[in-house]
Deep mutational scan, measured.
Amino acid sequence: EVDTLELTRQVKEKLAKNGICQRIFGEKVLGLSQGSVSDMLSRPKPWSKLTQKGREPFIRMQLWLSDQL
């Protein structure tokens, strides 16, 4: 189980620290539009309420944070 709230907090922190905009992060890392990324980072759904497809971007965020992506 992933703590989506904590994960998105860490992602936002790393984006800010490295000067990466959400649009680029969305396109290059998540394969999503800036609007989708913005929504996901500001209002993450609980892991238990996400479908497999809904969980994929959060898994990619985890990999990106651990420099595996």
Rank of each mutant, 00 (worst) to 15 (best):
E1H: 08
E1C: 14
V2C: 08
D3K: 06
T4A: 03
L5W: 12
L5Y: 12
L5I: 14
E6F: 06
E6S: 10
E6H: 08
L7G: 12
L7T: 10
L7C: 07
T8F: 08
R9E: 09
R9G: 08
R9S: 07
Q10A: 05
Q10N: 08
V11D: 11
K12E: 03
K12W: 01
K12C: 05
K14M: 15
L15M: 15
A16F: 06
A16H: 03
A16E: 09
K17F: 04
K17Y: 04
K17L: 10
K17H: 02
N18K: 14
N18M: 15
G19S: 13
G19F: 05
G19N: 13
I20N: 02
I20Q: 06
C21I: 09
R23K: 14
R23N: 14
I24T: 14
I24G: 03
I24E: 15
I24D: 12
F25Y: 01
F25H: 00
G26K: 06
G26E: 02
G26T: 05
E27T: 08
K28N: 05
K28P: 01
V29I: 15
V29S: 03
V29G: 07
L30M: 07
L30Q: 02
G31R: 09
G31H: 11
L32E: 05
S33V: 11
S33E: 04
S33T: 12
S33I: 10
S33F: 13
Q34T: 14
Q34K: 15
Q34S: 12
G35L: 12
G35T: 14
S36H: 11
S36P: 10
V37I: 07
V37D: 02
S38R: 14
D39K: 02
D39L: 05
D39Q: 13
M40T: 05
M40E: 02
L41E: 02
S42F: 07
S42N: 10
S42V: 08
S42C: 13
R43S: 15
P44F: 09
P44Y: 12
P44M: 06
K45G: 05
P46Q: 11
W47Y: 01
S48Y: 10
S48V: 04
K49T: 12
L50I: 02
L50Y: 06
L50T: 00
L50E: 00
L50V: 01
T51F: 13
T51R: 09
T51L: 10
K53E: 13
K53T: 07
G54T: 10
R55S: 01
R55C: 01
R55V: 02
E56S: 06
E56Y: 05
E56M: 06
P57N: 14
P57G: 02
F58H: 03
I59W: 04
I59E: 14
R60A: 04
R60L: 06
M61G: 01
M61E: 00
M61S: 01
Q62P: 00
Q62I: 04
L63W: 04
L63F: 04
W64F: 05
W64K: 00
L65V: 04
L65S: 00
L65A: 01
L65G: 00
S66C: 12
Q68K: 15
Q68M: 12
Q68E: 13
L69I: 05
L69W: 08
L69G: 11
L69A: 07
